[in-house]
Design a protein around this nucleic acid. Structure first.
Length: 136
DNA sequence: GTTCTCACA
DNA sequence: TGTGAGCA
């Protein structure tokens, strides 16, 4: 599992992440405040992002582009601390399956929502999303 | 030169 | 969310 270590290893500063994700520093920090990402910190209190963080930001970005707000994204990207993140990798497959399943359903739901709720933006998507996590 | 936090025309 | 201030 040395791969997970590399994947979660904090490497680049916010500047690099900005280019990698096309997000502004403001947005990246904003998402961090909402615990969508949990970058490591250097001694100088500077953020260090891992590949995982970048991937999460890309997911967040795609969701934002589809009209999902922070509240909605939080339900999809249930915040995971660095520790529990590793624990998730080692945990049972049932957890993994549930995650993949809900992701697939999520895509279908998002497409549906985006088409129907076009003008007014995602509004009732939050309640819909939460149901998937209870329903498996 | 960069990033950080905080605050707001 | 953008942007500028004042530090580190």
């Amino acid at each position: 599992m040395a791969d997970d270590i590399r994947r979660n290893m904090a490497l680049f500063p916010i500047g690099i992440v900005m280019k990698l994700t096309d997000l502004t520093a403001r947005q990246i920090r904003y998402y961090e405040q909402h615990e969508l990402i949990i970058p490591a910190r250097t001694g100088g209190n500077q953020r260090l992002f891992s590949f995982n963080d970048v991937e999460r930001l890309l997911e967040i970005k795609s969701l934002i582009e589809k009209g999902v707000n922070i509240a909605g994204i939080k339900q999809v990207m249930n915040p995971v601390s660095k520790e529990s993140e590793e624990a998730t990798v080692l945990s049972e497959q049932s957890e993994v399956k549930r995650r993949e399943l809900s992701d697939a359903q999520l895509h279908r739901l998002l497409k549906q929502q985006v088409l129907e709720n076009r003008p007014g933006r995602a509004s009732m998507i939050q309640g819909q999303l939460s149901r998937f996590y209870n329903k498996k």
